[in-house]
């Protein structure tokens, strides 16, 4: 469904993602792991190139989504495809909601675009259903992003994914800013979405135990390149590349230090 073909992301002076090829099949959970600065986030943002920081651009390669090249398609078409089929969930969920409008108003705008036929009451019902799935009360609709906690905003972001029923969710370390209990719950919600809506997930993750537990595929990135890829149980139990070995070694003992690094 999603295919990255020799994707290269570069700034004016150097290449940050080099010739990355990766594919995500329908309904599949694909994890990307690797040390900080490996280019994982940029790879994920490249699916909707408009999200890349303005100093960076895709210098070569293609991002094919259901056959359409998102790098070269016109802006309008690209946004149409991305908004109807892909949901982004960011590490800092708060920055993906506009601070001056309540959750209800923002969701209403989303539903008006994505489900134009719905009546006001039906929209409201959909919203409440989505909140129900992520275990938030309906009162959240009245609130503003800044009034919600980090875990709540992240759940709101997942509820948007439930509302729009995308084919693919792209998540960039969605749990690294959250406490252990909340992040466990968020991960379960991703699983619910994958199972009940049948959507594929491309998730950047620091926690190799999460990868092992949830992912169907894993790609290990280092220095802008994919150094190893395959099924998590085979890649993580018998790592071939030095970076993968280092990552795996650090899991039981140095887990907390990985966390801290990831939070930065």
């Amino acid at each position: 469904m999603l295919q990255m073909d020799k994707l290269t992301v570069a700034s004016a002076s150097n290449q940050l993602v080099k010739q990355v090829s990766l594919s995500v099949n329908k309904g599949e959970w694909h994890a990307v792991a690797g040390p900080s600065g490996a280019g994982k986030s940029l790879t994920a943002l490249s699916v909707y190139p408009d999200l890349l920081p303005s100093a960076l651009s895709i210098s070569s390669g293609a991002v094919l989504f259901q056959g359409e090249d998102l790098v070269r398609s016109p802006e309008k078409l690209r946004r149409h495809i991305v908004s109807r089929h892909i949901a982004y969930v960011f590490q800092d969920a708060r920055s993906s909601f506009f601070p001056l409008l309540s959750i209800y108003k923002q969701w209403e705008d989303i539903l008006k675009v994505q489900r134009p036929g719905l009546k006001k009451k039906e929209r409201r019902e959909k919203m409440e259903e989505a909140l129900d799935v992520v275990l938030l009360p309906a009162s959240v609709l009245k609130q503003y992003p800044s009034e919600l906690s980090g875990g709540q905003v992240q759940r709101v972001a997942l509820a948007v994914a439930w509302l729009t029923s995308p084919d693919l969710i792209i998540a960039d370390e969605p749990t690294s800013a959250l406490d252990v209990l909340t992040s466990a719950h968020i991960m379960e919600l991703f699983q619910t979405l994958q199972k009940e809506k049948g959507c594929a997930i491309l998730m950047i993750s620091h926690d190799l135990r999460e990868v092992l537990r949830f992912a169907d595929m894993v790609s290990i990135m280092a220095d802008g390149q994919i150094v190893e890829a395959g099924r998590p149980d085979s890649v993580l139990t018998a790592p071939k590349h030095e970076v993968t070995r280092r990552l795996c070694r650090s899991v039981p003992v140095l887990r907390s230090s990985i966390r801290r690094e990831g939070a930065q």
Partner: peptide
Amino acid sequence: EEPSLRAVSARGISEQK
């Protein structure tokens, strides 16, 4: 420059709106 605008635009809200 408001950071959330790109995410909002990725959800399909039209440029006018």
